[in-house]
Design a protein around this nucleic acid. Structure first.
Length: 520
RNA sequence: GGCUGGGUAGCUCAGCUGGUGAGAGCGCACGACUCAUAAUCGUGAGGUCGAGGGUUCGAUCCCCUCCCCAGCUACCA
């Protein structure tokens, strides 16, 4: 059984889960669920990035110890993922002892490799960094963050020139190896637009980065003291990025989570960390590289940029309550291309719900099941579905598969588009064959049988193929059709035979609300 | 400022290396049907393809300039 080990970015524990977090998790979860139904042994890793200065500051502001603070946040995130139906196999937290120990080991592994290198070539070395430090932000500033010699966030304070002595990582030495990596394996980073960005960056050459910091201690102690005896804190990216690698050091480790990962799903803003710094770290440590990094786009809200600082917020719970979890998942996946940016709006959500889910898919289920009950006492006639229609269906399913696990992989929005075509085509088929006319004359019994089993087979395939997107609703549809067991375990690489299934009319799958929800 | 993407019908987007009349879904208008969640099916209206130049027999697709949006621009993650 092939395995598929995918990860999402660990979320920074300085606030509540928001729409941006949800988009990434829902996308990765859907990819994971599709792969399970294609027969892969899947391991989906998600988790929390709990160290760093901001976390320590926020905890202090709220007057709680940092560990307690991140414990609370982790509970919130996990509750949200449960609500959203995220089928993760492992939830990692960077404050876990196993993680901290493994980070230390990875860094020591690099030091061990350094022992064989001459002085000027070693990965880790000590260096002083001088920069403009803002006391208000408690961080170094540069470029656009400095206006008139003042930090833009704290214009009343004067920036101080501060020198800090740290451990540095010789990232510059990896410019050539990384170029070679991208030349040999362009698919290492997708989509292409993000790859171009990194290629350009490599063209300019890389600078070294610091690997330890002196100004905060909420993190993993850097394993080796500086020559002056100071023990510093591991810089957050040397702590956060390795989570994908340290995950297997936890109890319950299984082969399917063995390093290297098959896919890192991340946001486009942290492409550089995952496509440059992370592979360089692994190269330095002599570890294999992940097979691929996928950088998805962002979602904005009502045309405005989505950010906590700008006060643009969307209560996730409210969005989920509106039409249910599955509809929310469907809307996000269908309307936000996973390789680009998208926009959230209540109006659009309502349109998609009514048109795709209630009218096209939900109603297709209702009318089909109603006819089978009315004309055949609920029993699906045996035999093969109509060939012409199913030839078209198979083409659509092939497109859907390609959008997940083929040439167009990691594009669930394209898979959804192909699957909804099946639903539309099936509605068209009903109109064309007019089963209600066939039912009036017993001489047409065979023709009516074929129509009815074709409808059921179409719906059964839709239920199985859309289960990764809408697990709960598709289980309900599956059950109404008379399918047995759990639809989320139905293999997608085999045709489904619906002969003799017993359908049961239930409540509408996607009911329309009595009164349209007020737009906000 | 620099780098990389994007700016195509009201909305969300397709449009491969330039070539017969620029497409889909939704929304809208009209018609058909009745199995169905006033659903469905058909037909139709709608676009100076961000703006302005240029190359070409011919450009949405190539080049230049400009405008707008997004991410990055090396230590906030």
């Amino acid at each position: 059984m092939p395995r598929f080990f995918l990860t999402t970015a660990i979320d920074y524990a300085n606030g509540e889960p928001h729409l941006g977090h949800a988009l990434e998790k829902i996308g990765a979860d859907t990819m994971a669920r599709f792969h399970r139904q294609f027969g892969y042994d899947v391991h989906l890793l998600i988790g929390m990035d709990e160290h760093g200065q901001k976390v320590a500051q926020t905890a202090e502001q709220q007057g709680v110890p940092p560990q307690q603070f991140v414990d609370d946040i982790a509970v919130q995130f996990q509750a949200m993922w449960k609500l959203l139906g995220i089928s993760y196999d492992q939830f990692i937290r960077t404050t876990a002892p196993e993680h901290k120990a493994a980070v230390t080991r990875l860094i020591e592994q690099i030091f061990a490799a350094d022992a064989a290198l001459p002085d000027g070539r070693r990965n880790f070395y000590e260096r002083s960094y001088t920069g403009m430090y803002c006391v208000g932000c408690e961080s170094f500033k540069q470029g656009a963050d400095i206006v008139d010699g003042k930090c833009t966030v704290h214009p009343t304070r004067t920036l101080e020139e501060v020198t800090e002595h740290n451990w540095f990582f010789r990232l510059s030495a990896y410019t050539a190896p990384l170029k070679a990596l991208f030349a040999a394996n362009p698919g290492f980073l997708e989509p292409e637009s993000r790859r171009n960005e990194i290629l350009q960056l490599l063209e300019q050459g890389l600078d070294d980065i610091s690997a330890s910091r002196s100004r905060f201690d909420w993190g993993v102690p850097f394993p080796r003291p500086l020559s002056n005896g100071d023990v510093q804190t591991t810089y957050v990216w040397f702590d956060a990025l390795p989570n994908y690698w340290t995950a297997r050091c936890f109890p319950g480790f299984s082969e399917k989570a063995a390093w290297p990962a098959d896919l890192h799903v991340i946001g486009k803003d942290i492409t550089r960390f995952h496509a440059v710094i992370w592979p360089a770290m692994l190269m330095a440590a002599g570890e294999p590289l992940p097979a691929q990094v996928w950088a998805h786009g962002f979602i904005s809200l009502g045309g405005e940029r989505f950010s906590k600082s700008a006060g643009v917020k969307l209560a996730l719970a409210e969005a989920i309550d509106r039409y249910g979890v599955d509809a929310f998942r469907y809307y996000l996946l269908r309307d936000v291309p996973f390789d680009g940016d998208g926009n959230f709006s209540w109006e659009r959500f309502e349109e998609v719900y009514n048109s795709d889910l209630a009218n096209t898919l939900g109603n297709l289920g209702s009318r089909s099941i109603a006819m089978i009950e009315k004309y055949r006492a609920g029993v699906v006639p045996s035999g093969a579905p109509e060939e012409a229609l199913f030839t078209a269906h198979r083409d659509a399913l092939a497109l859907a598969r390609a959008a997940v696990d083929g040439a167009r992989r990691h594009r669930p929005h394209e898979a959804i588009a192909a699957l909804m075509d099946i639903a539309r085509r099936t509605n068209e088929y009903i109109q064309r064959t007019q089963p209600w006319v066939l039912a009036k004359d017993p001489a047409n019994a065979a023709a009516l049988d074929e129509v009815l089993r074709t409808l059921t087979a179409s719906l059964a395939h839709l239920a199985a193929w859309l289960a990764p997107v809408m697990p709960h609703k598709m289980q309900a549809l599956w059950a109404q059709l008379g399918g047995s067991g759990d639809v989320t375990t139905v293999r997608l690489d085999h045709a489904i035979d619906v002969s003799g299934w017993k359908v049961t009319k239930g409540v509408p799958l996607f009911p329309k609300p009595e009164t349209p929800p007020a737009a906000t």
